[in-house]
Amino acid sequence: MTLPPDLVIFDCDGVLVDSEPLTNVVIRDNLARHGLELSLEEILETFVGGTMAGVMQEARAMGAQLPDDWVDCIYEEMFAVLAQEVEIIPGIVEVLEALDQASIPYVVGSNGPHRKMEITLGRTGLIERLRGRIYSREDVPKPKPAPDLYLHAAAQAGVAPGRAMVIEDSPTGARAAQAAGIPCFGYVAETDPARMTPLCDAVFDRMQVLPGLLGL
């Protein structure tokens, strides 16, 4: 592990923007309307970090009666809520400013679509800082937990995987970093640390400590 790293790759949802509590409620309520009642804790444990296509497949296997256009429909519900309510993760602006001061580049790598990130990063004021450095599972053959997205982000920056660092909040994303050979720090403010610790080089629950962990 290289500290400070030559590149930091941030997941988006739950790391840059506090979108997951909002979208989890949308998923819970939508699935209940389609015959599958789950608690928010069950939603978090089962689906967070994956793709909505993956949620659809898993929910159907659990008994939800979902229409074929469900992914498009659920995204429209999510986008409407996020555009009105999503907020920034406390302390992340200071992390980005510390990276700027250290001249360390950073990018975004998310399983979410570009349109979703345009909404969430736009509303929170991060979009201009990150534009041109935002990568989605739409840009690669396979989403997380496959390594494709993180390897693509590192390649675009011209940085060897072992010299980069991923910041993740989900086991799915941490497994993607592991598969890519990229060290990973796990943000566990909303995630059970026991699920992240075996997959990460370190875990932390406040963004304020991240610059120190990165060796800045």
Rank of each mutant, 00 (worst) to 15 (best):
R195P: 07
V166R: 00
A180T: 02
A174V: 05
G158C: 10
V81D: 09
V140C: 02
D29H: 05
I74F: 09
V15E: 02
L121Y: 14
I167S: 11
A153C: 10
M1S: 10
K142Y: 10
V203E: 13
A189I: 12
V86S: 13
G54L: 07
K142N: 15
E76L: 14
S103P: 02
L16C: 12
R163S: 14
C200P: 08
E138P: 05
A154P: 02
G181L: 00
E37Q: 13
A53T: 09
F10W: 11
Y75H: 15
F47W: 08
P141Q: 05
G181K: 02
E118M: 12
I88Y: 01
V107C: 15
Q156M: 08
V203W: 13
I104S: 06
D69G: 14
G173S: 01
H114G: 11
Q178I: 00
A154Q: 00
P105I: 02
I89F: 04
T120C: 09
H152S: 01
P147C: 11
G50H: 03
V17Y: 09
T120F: 11
D69W: 09
V25E: 13
T124I: 05
H114R: 14
H152M: 06
S103A: 14
T2L: 15
V209M: 08
N111T: 07
I89A: 14
E168R: 02
S103W: 10
I88V: 15
G162D: 03
A179F: 00
G181T: 01
L121H: 15
T120Y: 09
G186F: 03
M78A: 14
R133Q: 07
R133E: 10
C184R: 00
V93E: 15
Q208M: 14
